[in-house]
């Protein structure tokens, strides 16, 4: 059953794998990007973070991967404050897939080896299979893959770190409809395997398609119940960056 989360997303008292607790973030220019955001990401679910442009969704994900540090509040993984944990270990547990595929120079194999230098051929083949690519891709040059293939490779690269949570920042915004549906199905499979998937999107149709729960942000804060209803009732999904 789809849960639509409004002001207090932890009201159901389910233990969160990744917990954003009254998180605020102020940018270098002094602008408040997030203010008191609270939400919890559960194991084995696709949690969609939706909201208009500038709502702070991408910043929220960056806080989850500790590419940014909150100005106030805390982000916790399995109850431990991210500020107290080794960011390198945390980032392997809370993986991140970016909006645009980011292949590194070299082959798909060398890209995967960045995430796990000791992975053997069978492990590399398996992870590619998991994302819908086959082993023949290992020797392909990563830069020349199609958008969909490159994004799948990036997901495979992240999966090699064996994350418990994957943060996906509009991962299909640069893809065609067929690849979009393919990546959505992949996110569902990952959730079914027990991984907590956080999916940021502007596309409300997509949100309804894939979400186990939807968290709406407005102006850098949790949307109120009425704002959430109003936002989700839009006929035309907002498309933007």
């Amino acid at each position: 059953m789809l849960a639509i989360m409004g002001l207090d997303p932890r009201a159901n008292h389910e233990p969160a794998l990744l917990d954003f607790d009254t998180v605020s973030f102020v940018g270098l220019d002094g602008a408040t990007i997030l203010e008191g955001v609270t939400l919890g990401i559960l194991e084995g679910q696709v949690s969609v973070v939706a909201g208009p442009s500038g709502a702070g969704k991408s910043t929220l994900l960056r806080l989850g991967n500790r590419l940014e540090v909150p100005t106030a509040g805390a982000v916790r993984f399995r109850g431990e404050d991210l500020g107290l944990s080794d960011p390198r270990v945390l980032r392997r547990n809370v993986g991140m897939v970016f909006q645009k595929p980011i292949p590194f120079a070299g082959t798909v194999r060398s890209n995967l080896k960045v995430a796990d230098p000791v992975a053997n051929e069978s492990e590399l083949g398996n992870v590619l299979q998991r994302v819908g690519l086959d082993s023949s891709f290992l020797d392909r040059v990563a830069d020349v893959l199609s958008g969909g293939e490159a994004q799948r490779m990036c997901i495979a690269r992240t999966l090699l770190t064996k994350p418990a949570v994957i943060l996906m920042d509009e991962p299909t915004s640069a893809l065609d409809p067929k690849n979009r549906l393919g990546i959505e199905a992949l996110a569902r499979e990952l959730a079914n395997e027990g991984i907590g998937v956080v999916w940021v999107t502007h596309d409300l149709d997509q949100a309804h398609r894939i979400a186990d729960r939807i968290h709406v942000l407005v102006d850098g804060r949790n949307a109120t119940a009425s704002e959430t209803s109003l936002y989700l009732a839009q006929d035309t999904p907002e498309v933007g960056t």
């Binding site: 991967n65 590419l67 993986g95 970016f98 590194f104 992240t158 770190t161």
Partner: peptide, 10 residues
Amino acid sequence: DEVEARLALG
């Protein structure tokens, strides 16, 4: 972007 993608991998 690439540097942060590498950092994000731990």
